[in-house]
Amino acid sequence: MTYKMLVSDLDETFLNDDGTIHEENVQTVKRAVAQGFKFVPNTGRSFESVQKMLKQLDLYDQVGEYVISFNGSAIVENKNNQIIATQDMPFTMAKQIFKAGLIDASVDVHIYTLNKLFIYNISDSDKQYLATRGVAYVALKTTDLSFLNMQQPIMKVIFEHPDIQVRHKIHDAVVASVGIDQVEVTYSSDRYVEFNLKGVDKGSASLLLGEKLGITKDEIMAIGDNNNDLKMIKAAGLGISVANGINVVKEAADIVTKRTNNEGAIAEVLNQFVLIGEQ
């Protein structure tokens, strides 16, 4: 099989734990792209937050190169950050999720619009994590979200807490409020529980981009490490887990890399399936 595109999660997959990029990943991505291969970051974060990374990969402001953001809520062409497709969340739903998931004062909440990230009650650990990834945000001082009605579209709402049991309680509270048939729920980075509009996920966005580019499912590879990567890995022709992936991701994947994210796992994949025979 000739693969034409790799959709890749970023945090704990393509990026090192400290938010930097393994140099071997940088070089193999550049060589693959030079051959016409598509390397598409597929992230829960905004496309604005990955511009520095795109510059390192020579993908910044390039025609015919893409980023999938917000767990699949937006597909963006890198040239002028042109929006190709969005699947946003109704303002009323975002307010309902925010209210239900804010179960106590230890929880912080991220609200992603297309161009801004708003965070209420941000924790010190979350500040540090976002700083390592160069993520800009606007701090909210109030739970009154009426101003967001002018900030449409809203891409997703997520909650941060280090305790998985608290994240489960947030999940249950939101689902009880809005209904499981209304939202896609995923977990990521061992700190977030994320809510998108039902039907929006990294996998469906990957297939949609492939369709727009004339690339079939069988020609797409997908790689990730965590719960929000599952549908992407299952949707692709070849689903891959990094060596540091959680067990459920490893079980769902067709293959598991020998390398972790800190060891250049993407370079391993590209060398094995794309840059075959290259010296």
Rank of each mutant, 00 (worst) to 15 (best):
A253C: 07
L213M: 10
Y129I: 12
L57Q: 01
L148C: 05
Q279D: 13
V185G: 01
Q182V: 11
R259E: 00
Y187I: 07
I220K: 06
I119L: 06
L114Q: 06
N228F: 09
Q56I: 04
S204E: 09
H110R: 13
I83P: 01
Q272S: 15
V274F: 07
Y60P: 00
L197C: 04
N244K: 13
D218C: 12
L270V: 03
I233C: 11
H171R: 15
I122V: 13
T257L: 10
T92Y: 04
L197H: 03
T143V: 09
D225H: 06
N149W: 02
L140M: 10
K55R: 10
G36W: 08
S123H: 14
Q51P: 00
I75L: 05
I84L: 12
I122Q: 11
V67N: 07
V269M: 02
S49N: 11
T132I: 14
G64M: 13
M221H: 04
M1R: 12
A236I: 09
G134T: 06
V183C: 00
Q27L: 14
K202R: 09
R45Y: 03
K198M: 08
Y66L: 10
L270I: 06
V135R: 10
Q152H: 04
K30L: 05
A253K: 05
Y129D: 05
D172Q: 14
E24C: 11
Y3F: 14
Y112A: 06
G101F: 05
N271F: 10
L145V: 00
N244Q: 08
T92P: 01
H22R: 14
L145E: 01
D201Y: 06
D229Q: 11
M5V: 05
L208N: 05
L54F: 00
K79C: 13
I170F: 00
N71C: 11
I97P: 01
E65M: 15
Q279V: 14
I103R: 12
V183Y: 10
M53P: 02
N196R: 11
S189G: 13
V193A: 02
I122K: 12
I83L: 13
L145H: 03
V109F: 06
K141P: 06
N121Q: 03
L15N: 02
E263A: 04
Q279N: 14
N25C: 03
V138D: 13
S204W: 08
S241V: 08
A222M: 07
A136Y: 09
A74R: 01
V157T: 06
D225A: 14
K250W: 04
L145Y: 00
M93D: 01
A253Q: 08
G101K: 09
T142C: 08
Q62R: 15
I164M: 13
N25E: 04
Q96K: 14
L209E: 03
M53V: 06
V33K: 03
G224A: 02
L117I: 10
S123A: 15
V26F: 12
L10E: 07
F195Q: 01
K4S: 12
